[in-house]
């Protein structure tokens, strides 16, 4: 199955890149953008076919390497 991991900075952790994007959007006259948080997306193609096992596996990957949980949160979306 496929896994899509979205990694963003935790709430409360200052995101200067998000801030810069927010300022740029405002400068481009896109009004009403209150906050921008930047992150990254990692797509994985897994041999595992069982959803629960795949989730456990990807969670372990996030904890060990993909995310730095001191500063980042992650979410996992699985699809067939």
């Amino acid at each position: 199955m496929k896994a899509k991991v979205t990694i963003t900075l935790k709430n409360g952790v200052l995101d200067p890149q998000g801030k810069a994007i927010e300022h740029a959007l405002t400068a481009l006259d896109f009004g009403g953008v209150d906050e921008v948080r930047q992150g990254k997306v990692i797509e994985l193609d897994l041999a595992e076919t069982d959803e629960a096992k795949a989730k456990t596996q990807v969670e372990a990957m996030c904890e060990k390497l993909l995310a730095n949980t001191v500063i980042e949160d992650y979410s996992i979306e699985l699809s067939a």
Binding site: V13, L14, P16, Q17, A20, N68, V70, I71
Partner: peptide, 17 residues
């Protein structure tokens, strides 16, 4: 060393970018 967990915390982008 922070990524290995030998030291606490993390090093982020400089605030000035």
């Amino acid at each position: 060393l922070t990524e290995t967990g030998l030291l606490p915390g993390a090093l982020m982008h400089n605030a000035s970018l």
